[in-house]
Design a protein around this nucleic acid. Structure first.
Length: 120
DNA sequence: GTTGTGACATTAT
DNA sequence: CATAATGCCACAA
């Protein structure tokens, strides 16, 4: 048979991205989450970078709330001053999220979303 | 196959 | 709060 073991319908990489996309989409408006939390929720603890990559390669048609995903401590992960940064800050503020500099004023965002997802 | 970089996290200093 | 070091995985050259 073919010596190219290249499964056309392999769900290796795509499956992970889909899982992450779904988790990101599950973040409620007005609430922010972190890469680590999303990764853990998607089933990939410790793979925060994978989340970043997933968002980067995420098709625009999914309309994922990427602006609700911030770094640890509510730190915006995009370069301050860039178009993405302003866009994210603008969207977060539009959803009632207080943004100061390159940070969102959400106390213990990690614990909060974890509690929200774990308790209800 | 190695190296460098990255929309990251955590711990230590 | 900033910097350095380490871990983690995916991708481009």
């Amino acid at each position: 048979m073919a010596r190219t073991p290249r499964p056309a319908v392999v769900a290796g990489d795509d499956a992970r991205l889909e899982a992450i996309w779904r988790t990101v989409a599950s973040v409620p408006a007005g609430q922010v989450s972190t890469y680590g939390a999303i990764a853990a929720r998607a089933g990939f603890p410790g793979r925060a970078r994978l989340v970043g990559h997933a968002l980067k390669v995420a098709p625009n048609t999914l309309a994922l709330p990427w602006h609700r995903i911030v770094g640890a401590g509510g730190r915006i992960a995009v370069p301050a001053g860039s178009a993405a940064f302003r866009e994210q800050r603008r969207r977060l503020r539009a959803e009632g999220v207080e943004v100061v500099g390159a940070r969102v004023r959400i106390p213990r965002a990690d614990d909060l979303d974890a509690l929200l997802w774990g308790g209800g």
